[in-house]
Amino acid sequence: HNLTITQGKLFFHYNPKLCLSEIHKMEEVSGTKGRQERNDIALKTNGDQASCENELLKFSYIRTSFDKILLRWEPYWPPDFRDLLGFMLFYKEAPYQNVTEFDGQDACGSNSWTVVDIDPPLRSNDPKSQNHPGWLMRGLKPWTQYAIFVKTLVTFSDERRTYGAKSDIIYVQTDATNPSVPLDPISVSNSSSQIILKWKPPSDPNGNITHYLVFWERQAEDSELFELDYCLKGLKLPSRTWSPPFESEDSQKHNQSEYEDSAGECCSCPKTDSQILKELEESSFRKTFEDYLHNVVFVPRKTSSGTGAEDPRPSRKRRSLGDVGNVTVAVPTVAAFPNTSSTSVPTSPEEHRPFEKVVNKESLVISGLRHFTGYRIELQACNQDTPEERCSVAAYVSARTMPEAKADDIVGPVTHEIFENNVVHLMWQEPKEPNGLIVLYEVSYRRYGDEELHLCVSRKHFALERGCRLRGLSPGNYSVRIRATSLAGNGSWTEPTYFYVTDYLDVPSNIA
């Protein structure tokens, strides 16, 4: 807008934040220059609390790290170098490059900038070799853009010569660093050979998330399962459950009422301010606690030095998902009996873990797994792929695949051998790939016309006998059925096997 004052003059007093240069501009645009008398524009009460600059400061050096910015700028000295009290560095987070010096300023003089007072450097006698002032900004957020400017702080001049310097606002972004852990990993099994893994992005990506790394490792069953005799009275049979499938998407929606109208769909109840505040506090606490764990609990591995020492970490090797089922080394339970199943799973520490690289999504279907087997899954978020990966501390989750139908069934015939004193040795093959492992066998036998009897055969007993022995049988026709019990439950009964026990007292003698 054009402003013209045809008559009258300007009068400025007691404006401590208004620089004289701005008042002189007002004289020019209003056409009143030359009308004012000496005392109409006070030299001592206008701009006496402001830094009124008329020179431009330029930054000469900028260096960044993930949490620091090192700045240096060209030296500046007023005509009387004693008038320079120091520099004021202003900075704040700036997602967009549209910041002005006066953003967030209120009537009390406060604003949204963080201000650092910096002492002037030592003055050199040689004007050509003056030290460049600077400042190291610490405690910054990774991968965050900051708006920065600097200006001088000078003393009051009796001659009211307006001098000083100020830089333009520059924008500097800190470097990326390792992201925080992925949030809320959930693993479920939808079949006997697959596990579905879902997660949420890290709360602090500290860069642009480029991919996720998912490692999985087959877990050995508890050692007590191999040692305890679950045929003993009072000892509860062990059981394991597989990871249940995901709930429906509708039930997972946030901010939804727990109660549904019987007449149909209901609208979600909005969260109160107290609920939102509580969630923010919980989120802040979780982030602080995660940072504490990362800094205190997890110790970084030592990389190899120039002395030739090897990095103890196993090298990563990509495998196809079809090879995942046989990740671990199978060892027989008892070496003397080769027909026992290889369900003991000690994992070799030198073995390469299978892994998958996930790009542009937060889910993965891990296939080719062994049925009813526990897996430990390790999830890392990465925001750099080359020249070397920059990934987060791992988040861990466990899951067990679903049982395989008929995996616990005894394959092959049940054979028998009759000894003296009416002892019958029953023999059968253990299931080759049971659900988890076989903890015991149930032997059901009966003599024709009598009630059915049951015998429990422990895992250890089966390994020693290759089956079991029935003792003290009365003469007669017998039928026997056997079924295995694994961590997933009972298998199917075998087809009945028949044998006849004679009275050993009636056996004919070869003595003449």
Rank of each mutant, 00 (worst) to 15 (best):
L277K: 14
V365W: 11
Q380S: 12
G325H: 05
V331L: 11
L473N: 10
E389C: 12
F499W: 08
F355E: 11
E442T: 03
P312I: 15
E224L: 10
H416D: 15
L232F: 10
P387N: 13
L321Y: 08
N255M: 10
T340S: 11
L321T: 13
N422F: 03
E356C: 08
E465Q: 15
L470F: 06
Y448K: 13
H416F: 12
A463V: 10
R313I: 08
H454W: 02
K361E: 09
P475F: 09
V501Y: 08
G325L: 02
E433F: 15
P332N: 05
R301M: 01
S486I: 00
K271C: 03
P312N: 10
R459C: 14
K233P: 11
N255Y: 04
C456F: 01
T241G: 14
R301L: 05
H371E: 15
R316I: 15
E290N: 01
G325R: 05
S257I: 05
M427S: 08
C468I: 11
L228S: 03
K302A: 07
K278G: 03
Y212L: 01
E217F: 03
F499I: 11
T340F: 12
Y445L: 04
K460C: 14
V331K: 15
L232I: 13
H454I: 15
E388K: 04
V214C: 01
S509Q: 14
C269H: 01
D503S: 09
E356P: 15
T373D: 13
E227N: 08
T485V: 11
V480P: 01
S262K: 08
E281V: 08
E362Q: 08
N435G: 03
H416M: 14
P312S: 13
E389A: 04
Y396L: 04
S315I: 10
S283K: 01
S257K: 12
R218D: 05
L280H: 10
I438A: 12
C269L: 04
E356H: 12
L225N: 04
R400W: 03
T343R: 11
S315K: 07
E362P: 08
E247V: 11
P244N: 13
I377Q: 03
F246G: 13
Y396C: 09
E465A: 09
G412S: 15
S344M: 10
C231A: 01
S392E: 00
D204W: 15
T347V: 06
N421S: 13
N383Y: 02
N360P: 07
V334C: 04
T241D: 09
E249H: 07
V424Y: 14
E221G: 09
S344K: 10
Y230S: 11
T347C: 06
